[in-house]
């Protein structure tokens, strides 16, 4: 799980072009949107592409993204639950 989270952070930094940021600087529990990293709705769409590209998980309704992308923890949990059920 920790490996997955670290990997996820690396992918997130690359996909969202968070220049100069290191995976260590992203807190697993901190909110990604709004207050925390300051991501917005376009980043959410980019994260949907990220999940499909790297984890073969498709999110059909953009509204579902809000919960899933709350933090690195929630994203990792979601990925794991999808992979277990697959």
């Amino acid at each position: 799980m920790e490996d997955l989270k670290y990997k996820l952070k690396e992918q997130l930094i690359e996909a969202l072009n968070l220049e100069g940021m290191k995976p260590e600087e992203i807190d697993n529990t901190a909110p990604l949107f709004g207050e925390g990293l300051g991501l917005d709705s376009i980043d959410a769409l980019e994260l949907i592409v990220l999940l499909e590209k790297h984890y073969n998980i498709r999110i059909e309704d953009p509204k579902d993204g809000r919960k899933i992308f709350h933090s690195i923890d929630t994203m990792a949990e979601y990925i794991q639950s999808k992979q277990l059920s697959a």
Binding site: A15, I42, L45, E46, V49, E52, K53
Partner: peptide
Amino acid sequence: QMLNPTAFM
């Protein structure tokens, strides 16, 4: 498939 919205936007 799997296209990024930012470039389009």
